[in-house]
């Protein structure tokens, strides 16, 4: 068990933080907290990708023009994560804009209060 955690610590952190993010998204009544939970979830998944590309004792994927060196970490998960981070912040921006709009229309950000107001 300890040995498993010691060798796969990044994946264990990924599982824990992902569950925490999902918990905030489901359990917190506040809409802004839900967006924070979404961001927690996202960066946990990024950690999974980055950890899977890591090589112990390697160097960053900057190959000198004459070649050689290494071992290098795999650059492909990094590329996917870079794209995902930028898309994620766009998502956060739109979600927060919707939250500001909801607050202007209904005057509350609490999930249960919102449900009561919209059911009437």
């Amino acid at each position: 068990m300890i040995e498993l955690l010691a060798t796969r610590w990044a994946y264990a952190v990924f599982v824990f933080v992902m569950a925490t993010g999902l918990y905030v998204m489901i359990g917190s009544p506040n809409l802004v907290k839900k967006v924070i939970g979404l961001n927690l979830f996202q960066s946990a998944v990024f950690l999974f990708f980055v950890a899977s590309a890591y090589v112990a004792g390697g160097s960053p994927a900057i190959v000198p023009s004459e070649g050689g060196g290494g071992p290098y970490v795999s650059p492909l998960p990094h590329v996917i994560v870079l794209t995902a981070i930028v898309v994620g912040v766009s998502l956060t921006a739109v979600a927060l804009a919707l939250i500001v709009r909801i607050h202007r229309e209904y005057g509350t950000l609490d999930e249960s209060v919102l449900r009561e107001v919209t059911d009437e």
């Binding site: 990024f46 950690l47 980055v50 390697g58 960053p60 994560v81 930028v86």
Partner: peptide, 19 residues
């Protein structure tokens, strides 16, 4: 910081600025 430690400086930089 964890991304940077896992030798992904580009991701670390982007996460710092954006996250």
């Amino acid at each position: 910081l964890l991304y940077t430690l896992l030798l992904a400086p580009d991701v670390g930089l982007t996460e710092a600025v954006i996250g």
